[in-house]
Deep mutational scan, measured.
Amino acid sequence: KELVLALYDYQEKSPREVTMKKGDILTLLNSTNKDWWKVEVADRQGFVPAAYVKKL
Rank of each mutant, 00 (worst) to 15 (best):
W37K: 01
L5H: 04
N30T: 08
E2K: 09
E40F: 06
K38T: 09
G23T: 02
R44P: 01
Q11S: 12
W37E: 01
G46Y: 05
Y10D: 00
V48L: 02
A50Q: 07
E17V: 05
L56Q: 05
N30Q: 11
V39A: 01
D24T: 08
P15D: 12
T19F: 04
Y8G: 06
S14M: 08
V41S: 15
L7G: 02
P15T: 10
Y10H: 04
Y8S: 08
Y52F: 13
T19E: 04
S31W: 08
Y10G: 00
Q45A: 13
A42Y: 13
E17I: 04
F47K: 03
I25R: 05
E2R: 11
V4Q: 01
L5G: 03
V18I: 15
M20R: 00
I25M: 06
E12M: 12
E12A: 15
K34D: 12
D24I: 05
I25W: 06
L28V: 07
K55H: 09
L29T: 05
L56S: 04
T27R: 12
L28H: 01
K13P: 05
K55R: 15
L28W: 01
R16I: 12
L56E: 04
V18H: 03
K22L: 06
N33I: 07
Y52T: 09
T27W: 14
D43F: 09
P49K: 04
D35S: 12
V41M: 15
K21I: 08
D9N: 08
A51E: 11
L5I: 15
Y8Q: 14
V53D: 02
Y10P: 01
E2N: 13
R16S: 14
V48G: 01
K13R: 14
R16M: 13
E17Y: 06
V39Y: 00
P15R: 11
L3I: 09
L29D: 02
N30A: 10
S14P: 04
V41G: 14
K38W: 14
N30F: 06
W36K: 02
W36P: 00
I25F: 06
I25Q: 05
D9I: 02
E40G: 09
S31G: 13
Q45L: 08
N33G: 12
K54R: 13
V53R: 00
L29Q: 04
R44A: 06
K13N: 09
K13V: 08
N33V: 05
K55Q: 09
V39N: 00
L26I: 08
M20P: 00
T27Y: 11
G46H: 02
A6T: 04
T32I: 09
V4R: 02
S31E: 15
L26E: 00
V18L: 14
I25N: 02
K54M: 15
K55T: 08
K38Q: 14
R16T: 13
V4Y: 07
A6K: 00
Y52N: 08
K55A: 08
L26H: 03
V53S: 01
K22I: 06
D9A: 07
K34R: 12
N30M: 08
N33R: 10
P49H: 03
A51G: 12
L7Y: 04
D35C: 12
K34L: 11
T32W: 09
G46T: 02
E12S: 15
E2T: 13
N30H: 07
P49M: 03
F47C: 12
K55E: 08
N33W: 07
K21V: 10
S31N: 10
I25A: 03
